[in-house]
Design a protein around this nucleic acid. Structure first.
Length: 572
RNA sequence: CGGGGCGUAGCGCAGCCUGGCAGCGCGCCUGCUUUGGGAGCAGGAAGCCGGCGGUUCGAAUCCGCCCGCCCCGACCA
């Protein structure tokens, strides 16, 4: 591979639009270019990295017994209407009409299509189990695409769907996928953590997400320092520790708090601790408005609220609506006298003298008692876990980490097989619904995640398994005939040996080539200069290393081959 | 969708307040010199100043509408 012939448009300066480090470096390294918001071109080197990820995914999926298929990007509305998701998926589903004015969408996921395929072709228990996967372009019309390849609208995803006779087989398959995913991310050289995830309205007893640890991650996760427990913060339980409140600490009292709305303001104004204050959050749901009570120093976990209420739509009520429901401006809502259902976090229930809004402009109530002064419809764990909470498994200490979700596996059960009537006949000739599971990997997101994890001031540091090329070959001066002959000969020799090598044959000064080589993240750099060449040596430097090593030219291909396989093998 | 910011050469930006030749750095092209960490000199190409409308003798600059992009938030199988 000759640098001068490749489209590798590196940039010295960071384009203004890029915020995330992976986005900046992908642009600067000439691996991607934006076409429009959340939609990118992959240039030759970017495509090579993608291909590396895809290859690892294919090898491990095949090894786990899955079969590769390719489903269409464009899907007919009928299937989505049949599953019921045409009406509920929302604007993230890109819909359009064909020339006959028939409804279509660009697939954000493929449960409908794959279930349709299987229901047409699979009729007997003898044909099960089946695990079908594809690596394909998805489109989700994200409200706000951001961070380059981390949250794009069009992206490459590996999605797999398993079909089993029953739950037992599906769970074994789930475990196989769990293991395959661990191997995939390990081979990709990623530092990741598997966390318990919310399985959402789909249900199912469990779900796991694979998180690449990075400070720029959009997801928060709670991880136990003592045991193996780790969960998405959306899912992380706060151990239930129900206690009765103490007796009332005195009559409740109406206190004027002019213009004092937030927990911080109330705490400062009344000189109380935020732990003594209760926030009353008014939410709208498809089943009507509710009030959620959360202690002042805690944050509500909306996923837990949704699961408790069994609703899919949950949004903070607008200012006007809050006024209608509480009779006061936002900031002064409280549970006393509220007419809508009240759900309280467990921490609230044991408070015997809480400060709450008074449902009266510019007033709060002191010494409110949960049993004496208002009625709680239900009480539960409704708040986000914090680093101060104990591990729900072992009581150990939790750490809150940030992560980028690169994989998600969950059981679907009969949701789609029932909706689309995907059935088989069992040994007794009885019709049974097929038991499904689904397993996703964000292939293009892995590329970004690897860069978020592997970079320094000079550029990308790719793990060997993902690098666009394994070796960069840099001549100090192509005008020196000996050097020139040597690098072209080496280039051929290395390619013959099956080593991916990029010869920087550009008419540039060495400094430019070093800068670009670092920027691209090529793991091994071979420099040929007149002096070392005269000694029959090449200079080899690992991207991560400070100092170079000197290797005899004769032994160079073997030396590189060993380095490469050691590094790919190490992450295998 | 709410809040904020930005659209001027391929990239990074100045000019706009106070209307009057469209600029700077990098990149690109030609030539010479140079060759171990983003070279030097000389010459050159490249712009509907996001779009539409208005004000004005005259608009990148002032006014209105629209479009696009980025950030924060809400949202997210």
């Amino acid at each position: 591979m000759l640098f001068s012939r490749m489209l590798i448009p590196t940039l010295k300066e960071t384009p203004a639009e890029a915020e995330a480090i992976s986005h900046q470096l992908l642009l600067r390294a000439g691996m991607i270019r934006k076409v429009t918001s959340g939609i990118y071109n992959y240039l030759p080197l970017g495509k090579r990295v993608l291909a590396k990820v895809e290859r690892i995914v294919r090898e491990e999926m095949d090894r786990a017994g899955a079969q590769e298929v390719l489903m269409p990007a464009v899907q007919p509305a009928e299937l989505w209407q049949e599953s019921g998701r045409w009406g509920v998926y929302g604007k993230e589903l890109l819909r359009f009409l064909d020339r006959h004015e028939r409804d279509y969408c660009f697939g954000p996921t493929h449960e409908e299509v794959v279930t349709d395929l299987v229901r047409r072709e699979v009729h007997s228990y003898r044909q099960l189990p089946l695990n079908l996967y594809q690596i394909q372009t998805k489109f989700r019309d994200e409200i706000r695409p951001r961070f380059g390849l981390i949250r794009s609208r069009e992206f490459i995803m590996k999605d797999a769907y398993s079909f089993h006779k029953g739950e037992a087989g599906a769970e074994a398959c789930y475990q196989d996928m769990y293991d395959a995913y661990n191997r995939i991310f390990k081979r990709c050289g990623l530092n990741f953590k598997v966390v318990e995830a919310d399985s959402g309205p789909i249900g199912g007893s469990f779900s796991h997400e694979f998180m690449v640890l990075a400070d720029t991650g959009e997801d928060l996760l709670a991880s136990c320092n003592a045991c193996a427990y780790a969960a998405n913060l959306e899912k992380a339980e706060v151990p239930l520790d129900l206690q009765e409140p103490g007796p009332p600490a005195g009559d409740k009292e109406l206190m004027a708090t002019p213009g004092v709305r937030t927990v911080e303001e109330v705490a400062a104004f009344l000189k109380v601790n935020s732990k003594d204050i209760v926030k009353t959050l008014i939410y709208e749901t498809e089943r009507g408005p509710v009030a959620i009570l959360i202690r002042g120093d805690h944050e509500v976990n909306e996923v837990k609220v949704k699961n408790l209420l069994g609703v899919t739509d949950l949004a903070l009520a607008g200012l006007i609506r809050v006024q209608e429901l509480t009779g006061a401006e936002a900031g002064f809502a409280g549970p006393v006298g509220l007419e809508i259902p009240i759900y309280a976090d467990q921490a609230v229930v044991r408070m015997n003298a809480m400060v709450t809004g008074a449902n009266h402009d510019n007033h709060h109530l002191l010494r409110v008692h949960p049993q004496r002064d208002f009625k709680i419809s239900r009480m539960a764990d409704l708040r986000a876990a914090t680093a101060q909470d104990p591990c729900p498994r072992c009581g150990g200490e939790l750490t809150i980490l940030r992560g980028i979700e690169v994989g998600h596996i969950f059981k679907l059960g009969h949701k789609y097989s029932k909706a689309l009537k995907a059935v088989y006949l069992d040994q007794e000739g009885a019709e049974q619904y097929i038991y499904m599971g689904c397993y996703g990997i964000g292939v293009s997101r892995i590329v970004a995640a690897a860069i978020e994890q592997g970079h320094d001031d000079h550029g990308i540091i790719f793990p060997m398994a993902l690098a666009p090329v394994q070796v960069a070959l840099i001549p100090i001066s192509l005008n020196d005939a000996a050097v020139r002959d040597c690098v072209f000969k080496l280039h051929e020799e290395l390619e013959t040996a099956g080593i991916e090598v990029l010869l920087d044959d550009r008419d540039e000064r060495p400094g430019v080539k070093f800068k670009d080589c670092d920027l691209l993240g090529v793991p091994l750099r071979v420099v040929i200069g007149a002096k070392t060449l005269a000694q029959g040596q090449a200079e080899v430097k690992e991207r991560r290393a400070q100092a170079p090593e000197f290797v005899s030219l004769a032994g160079l291909p073997e030396f590189l081959r060993q380095r490469i396989s050691a590094q790919i093998g190490a992450s295998k």
